[in-house]
Design a protein around this nucleic acid. Structure first.
Lengths: 335, 335
DNA sequence: CTGTTAGCGCGTTCAC
DNA sequence: GTGAACGCGCTAACAG
């Protein structure tokens, strides 16, 4: 930032006033002659003075900075959440510093250190796939920095958490398939240790149970990495004697991979096989046939998480909350 | 950030050392007893000491912060560019502070002030649709803050600029349509004052001219806001006596709106009408039929802009550059 | 109403 | 090798 910036000292010197008087004038405090106040403001404007946020932060012991760490930004879900956070932050005079962990614990930890170093007032985090250690976050809390988990949360830590009911969304989707008359419903599932994946799996299982449909292990396709594994497992699935007539996928992209594959094989969607996805990605709407999916209130998650964090920072709230938002079924032509 | 954080003063007190000794130990300078150095480091680790970035910035007169202002983040283009910037920033010890102007000059200005106040070392900006005033940016430059424009740039200002050759991309797309045998090619265009829109329009016009095709004003659909206007104008276009048999749209979303509309009317794509878009949005790949489009090197734009900025900040470069990257045609089934 | 003093956490002289 | 003193830009407490 060099030396080119104007400071209150500069203003004071030119006006033959002390820095404290200038400071008071600038901040519009009482106990100041309207005339001198006018002079200060005029000169500040003329010289294009901007207060030094850094210096203020140092004195006030608050930066009005909120750190955000999330795994990716390529997914619409996180983009929406981030937008929601930015909106709330902005409305409350805070600013967001966003970081992408890219699903790496190392990067997550590195960013955590950096954000602590920058002295953020609070942190919003959706942990990476492999994060299980809560210690680092407890350390952050000990430093007086508020931490709120959203989307992908950790269990063994006391903190406010904002999530979406994954179980319910999955249940809705599968129930919808059943009511449409599909009985052999397969599921493209995620890694078992990921809570989101596990919740959706349970929604799937419970929906089947409720309607007395048989649960078949060979209809459940566990994938660690969807891009690479989904297609492979789908191929094997459709070599079975009793092929499924519906698929509930854990996300839209794997649903679409699946759809394209089956279409190439000559299956008609949804006549021969119905497909439902999860996330309501923009592509789900334009793919042919348009994909039935679950819409998560991602924007609201972001807004809520940010608001709860700011409340905690400003001591408007002194207990941890566990907010679980509802998602909704969007029925399109693929089912 | 409260009072809970450990400072070098705390370390010094516990170790009965002066703050300057602690500071030297922490930074690994010379002139220090390896033994005391070890003690300091050990205690720092034990107490979870993290240097105060804020205080350091104040002393060093640099924040290692890079401000980014862009119109939106919902488009894949900007998400990619941002990712590229983050990668470069990270690799060089900088951090990104991103802001969304949401195409509003007011917000753009407000963020500009805020970032100046935070004392960012440099700024990467893609201006809003309506921004024409360069004064504010010149003011920022005067303060010693380096400014680099990317994507949407301003003409009347001396600064490094990174853009993508829009003219060329449009030319390629239209040339491709012509070579495929389409002769009556319409264009969904953007606002005339937007340089991107104007460049693409010229690419369209010049391609037609090169192949001696007639330029028809009624085939050029100027839209201020694509979402709302594109459909309306397309409808009118296809009421003409001589209907076009190909459409080159300024972006993928308007191309797809258009495609869906025509398909509903019974037109076959690309047999009856060919359609080409721009941007290579993820949806362009999965829409049916898959959309021919232009891919811009968005990630590279972000990386390059960030790298050039850091070079300027660190005085490795002392002249302004005007970098124009190439885009490429992606041929799919819609043409 | 205004100026003086002290201090936020840290880096940088300059002595010792 | 180490410490004291000062300053970065600003706010806060007090004196006048």
């Amino acid at each position: 930032m060099l030396n080119k910036q104007v400071t209150i000292k500069d203003l004071g010197r030119k006006l033959r006033l002390s820095v404290s008087t200038v400071s008071r004038a600038l901040r519009g405090l009482q106990d100041i002659n309207p005339e001198t106040r006018g002079k200060v403001l005029a000169l500040a404007k003329e010289l294009n003075y901007e207060p030094n946020y850094i210096a203020t932060s140092l004195v006030n012991k608050q930066t009005k900075l909120i750190g955000v760490i999330m795994p990716v930004i390529s997914s619409q879900y996180f983009v929406n959440a981030l937008s929601g956070m930015m909106e709330i932050a902005d409305a409350n005079g805070y600013h967001i510093m966003s970081c992408l962990s890219d699903e790496s614990i190392e990067r997550e930890t590195a960013y955590l250190k950096k954000l602590v170093s920058i002295r953020i007032d609070g942190l919003l985090i959706s942990v990476s796939k492999n994060t299980t250690n809560v210690e680092e976050f407890i350390n952050v809390q000990r430093k007086g920095i508020h931490v709120i988990f959203f989307d992908r949360v950790l269990e063994n830590i006391e903190a406010t958490k904002v999530t979406v009911n994954q179980y319910e969304g999955a249940f809705f989707a599968v129930e919808h398939l059943i009511k449409k008359g599909y009985t052999r419903i397969a599921h493209i599932a995620g890694p078992r240790h990921l809570s989101i994946a596990s919740d959706r799996l349970h929604g799937y299982l419970d929906a089947l149970s409720k309607y007395n449909l048989q649960i078949r292990e060979d209809y459940i396709l566990y994938c660690e990495d969807f891009e690479s594994e989904a297609l492979d497992k789908i191929q094997k699935l459709f070599l079975l004697k009793e092929k499924p007539n519906a698929i509930f996928a854990i996300n839209d992209s794997s649903a679409i991979i699946c759809m394209k594959y089956l279409q190439n094989l000559g299956y008609r969607i949804p006549e021969d096989v119905a497909i439902a996805g999860y996330n309501n990605d923009p592509i789900s709407e334009v793919v042919f046939p348009a994909l039935t999916t679950i819409m998560q209130p991602s924007y609201e998650v972001g807004k809520l998480a940010a608001q709860l964090l700011i409340n905690e920072i400003e001591n408007k709230s002194n207990f941890y909350e566990n907010r679980i938002l509802k998602s909704s079924l969007i029925i399109r032509s693929s089912t």
